[in-house]
Design a binder for these strands. Structure first.
Lengths: 141, 141
DNA sequence: CTGCCTGCAAAATCTTTGCATAATT
DNA sequence: AATTATGCAAAGATTTTGCAGGCAG
């Protein structure tokens, strides 16, 4: 998917305009990896202090609609956004230490096939977050 | 786990008190299947109109701590609580029609084994929600 | 009785919206 | 010049907290 390269063109095709805010938000998400709207705002403000939080929200929505970013829920509160330029990955979140491990979607292939067959359900693995306990926090077995 | 049968005893063991509000909230969650705090409040109020929303929040937290209910995120906003008395199941949520399909955790055994081996991660399948597209909403294949 | 619980109201978060102004095309 | 996008402030929605009185144990 090359949407990333010509995203500016994609914007215009849909009748949207290219603004500094939109560039800043997208690059902040790229840079941060995983970030809440609030964290994106902070990052953006390091480069341009006058950007408003509501613009960040509106822009994240827009970028998501265009398929340039995605969001998942790594904590109970606050969605976290990440770029679709980085390879798709599943988030494994440790309930204790809050660590986030990125897993290869290929590890979920068997599951995907099964859910498809069993329920006719087409899972969106890119959006998936699995909660649990990481190696460090597991009760020593 | 028979925690469910003697949950009242469990409460006391931990030094908590048995109140009508707590009974009402627990039975509402049992009855509703999946419900947001707000929906739980409505259900509870059908039986006792004076219960307050903050009590519902506090009670759901407590019941979750005791392992009598659990919550997941079926939508972007609002957690939904469900009883642990019903058999564990994974939620498959359709992004289009919002339908919720309950899947058997056994379907995830292979995945669990793999995550354990690959990442030392112990997934909490009971908390899992998989987003995607249900049979009805999939582009006709 | 003692101290946990609850209801109430206010505060705290997080997100969305209306509107006038600024900026893109 | 025509419109979309932004900043600002206020409104919404959801959840949490402080407190005084009520109730379980």
């Amino acid at each position: 998917m090359t949407a990333r390269e010509d995203w500016q063109e994609l914007l215009r095709e849909k009748g949207y305009r290219l603004t500094p805010q939109r560039e800043l938000v997208l690059s902040a998400v790229d840079r941060l990896g995983h970030a809440t709207p609030d964290e994106v705002l902070s990052a953006v403000r390091e480069q341009s202090s006058a950007v408003n939080i509501s613009t960040v929200y509106r822009t994240l929505d827009l970028l998501e609609e265009l398929g340039l970013v995605r969001h998942t829920h790594l904590t109970d509160r606050a969605p976290t956004y990440h770029s679709t330029a980085t390879p798709q990955h599943v988030h494994l979140v440790c309930r204790d230490c809050r660590a986030v491990i990125d897993a290869d979607p290929a590890e979920f292939d068997t599951l995907v096939a099964r859910l498809r067959k069993q329920h006719g359900f087409e899972p969106d693995i890119g959006h998936l977050t699995v909660f649990g306990r990481c190696a460090d926090c597991r009760p020593e077995s």
